[in-house]
Design a binder for these strands. Structure first.
Length: 275
DNA sequence: CGTTACCCCTGGAGGC
DNA sequence: TGCCTCCAGGGGTAAC
């Protein structure tokens, strides 16, 4: 479910409630998500204070840096994961896999499909973690623009959509926002990445940035409702131009939106508007 | 090295 | 109502 904007909104939602709080204990109800849980989270994590939460791609990085015995809690939401702040006595429900009991709040990880990841990292800079070390550029960073995209697509024969979703090149762009960005830029998801002109790379880079920022903006409005004792907070739904609209008229030209499969993922696009 | 196939899971939708 | 099949927004890993 979550792409970069949803993960960032999660980070912003958690931060004011957890920063500066000490972790009292952890509760595991599931032996493993993507990775084994207890073996990856040392009990001595309890007692540490959370200083801040960072994000790299779709990974949330909880900074428990504290004198000599600190480290980082790494959380990835996978396809269906979510993190919520809850009152201490909230009974767990189905698929509530992990609790971090802080002094004032409970942080709870919920993930029906269990593709999420929870890991602990210490002893080296967080950027050195094997899952983070080879991640690509942040699409909202100043360094990401048309020139960067042009340079890094040269020589690539893979379809542009596949490249956009490759986290070793660009992080955070998932299936929905890849489709929406390509529609916005008028580029076919099947276009060979290395053959896209500099001008169109510029257009695409802008489209990616604007698509993500628009989603962030939409999510920002839900922040004040972040703390809920029950029910689904639910991720905001960005209204999609092409994603999920197979067979429906293109909102630009009214031709039916197509859906094909690329690298095992569905690709929605308009063959008339996207070349 | 670049690219692709497969796999980890559950739940919801739609067909019969 | 029930059973079956297919599909889902991620991403690491193995294999070519």
């Amino acid at each position: 479910m979550p792409e970069l904007p949803e993960v960032e909104i999660t980070r912003l939602g958690l931060l004011p409630h957890l920063a500066g709080q000490s972790l009292q204990r952890m509760i595991f109800r599931t032996p493993k998500l993507r990775y084994d849980l207890p073996s990856h989270l040392p009990p001595r994590l309890a007692g540490l204070t959370l200083s801040t939460i960072l994000r790299r791609g779709k990974y949330l990085l909880f900074d428990f840096e504290h004198e000599a015995r600190g480290g980082w809690l790494i959380v990835h939401l996978g396809m269906s994961g979510s993190l919520r702040i809850l009152p201490h006595d909230t009974p767990p429900q189905k698929h509530d896999h992990v609790d971090w009991v802080f002094a004032r709040h409970l942080l709870r990880f919920h993930d029906p499909r269990r593709f999420g990841a929870v890991l602990w990292h210490e002893g080296e800079p967080i950027a050195a973690h094997p899952l983070l070390a080879h991640l690509g550029i942040e699409p909202l960073s100043a360094a990401f623009d048309g020139n960067w995209l042009y340079k890094h697509t040269r020589g690539r024969t893979t379809p542009i959509k596949t490249l956009l979703m490759d986290s070793h090149i660009i992080v955070g762009v998932g299936n929905i926002y890849a489709a929406e960005s390509l529609f916005s830029a008028g580029i076919s998801p099947w276009r060979e990445a290395g053959k896209i002109s500099r001008a169109r790379c510029q257009k695409l880079a802008t489209a990616i940035r604007e698509t993500l920022e628009k989603a962030l903006e939409a999510g920002g409005s839900t922040l004040r409702n972040y703390v809920q004792s029950n029910g689904e907070r639910g991720f905001f739904q960005l209204s999609c131009q092409v994603y999920g609209r197979k067979g429906l008229p293109c909102l630009r030209c009214a031709q039916p939106v197509l859906c094909t499969t690329q690298a095992g993922r569905s690709s929605f696009y308009c063959a008339h508007c996207q070349r």
